[in-house]
């Protein structure tokens, strides 16, 4: 069993006595349950050590990789704010344990643009049509829309409604979201 120095340091800081037998048992339970996961995030290989394998992808991104573009809304896959792409398909990152994505490829809002200076057509359309109000759900909306356009380059209103049904917007920006998706589609949004 490998003792991971930061974990010990954290226990020490918390006042937890690691020399006591009970504490040793607890600590060994903890460390045995920890895992090292390797995933590709936006094309970059990331190794995450000493993570509870049940940790949702959402919190792995936000807390362990400090990538906070992906948002927490409901924790139950009900709102879509946490949408990312797993191997190119949109998924709810709040409901997928990190152990289930080991070795796989994740794209987040931070990596949606192919190049730093060239935004995805959806991102451009979102800015042009000034879609966001509070903006909190928009990363999830854009990721889900990108997935839609990659399957269907020119979706109808109904197809957009159906595909976007799981992405809630509390501010009510639906009209502009639909408009921006159409606009990106005409500019080759699937690219």
């Amino acid at each position: 069993m490998r003792l991971y120095p930061p974990a010990i340091a954290d226990f020490e800081r918390s006042g937890f006595d690691i020399s006591s037998s009970d504490a040793t048992v607890e600590l060994s339970l903890l460390l045995e349950s920890m895992a090292t996961i390797t995933i590709s995030v936006n094309g970059e290989r990331r190794e995450i050590s000493d993570i509870d394998p049940a940790t949702p992808l959402l919190w792995t991104l936000r807390d362990h990789l400090q990538m906070v573009g992906t948002k927490f809304g409901c924790g139950k896959g009900l709102c879509g704010a946490c949408t990312v792409h797993l191997n190119g398909a949109s998924v709810r990152s709040c409901s997928i344990p990190i152990s289930a994505v080991d070795g796989q490829s994740v794209t987040t809002i931070e990596g949606l643009a192919a190049k730093a200076n060239k935004l995805h057509p959806l991102q451009e359309a979102w800015m042009e049509h000034d879609v966001p109000q509070c903006g909190y759900c928009q990363a999830g909306q854009i990721m889900n829309a990108a997935s839609l356009l990659s399957r269907n380059a020119n979706p109808s209103d109904t197809e957009i409604n159906d595909a976007m049904a799981g992405n809630l917007c509390r501010c009510g920006t639906y009209k502009r979201i639909r408009k921006a998706i159409h606009s990106a589609a005409t500019k080759g949004g699937a690219a």
């Binding site: 990538m67 906070v68 573009g69 992906t70 987040t108 809002i109 931070e110 949606l112 643009a113 935004l119 959806l122 991102q123 979102w126 800015m127 042009e128 000034d130 966001p132 903006g135 928009q138 990363a139 854009i142």
Partner: peptide, 12 residues
């Protein structure tokens, strides 16, 4: 358009 839009759509 909103001044934060670029930051919003790129997840900053």
């Amino acid at each position: 358009p909103g001044v934060d839009n670029q930051a919003l759509v790129t997840g900053q």
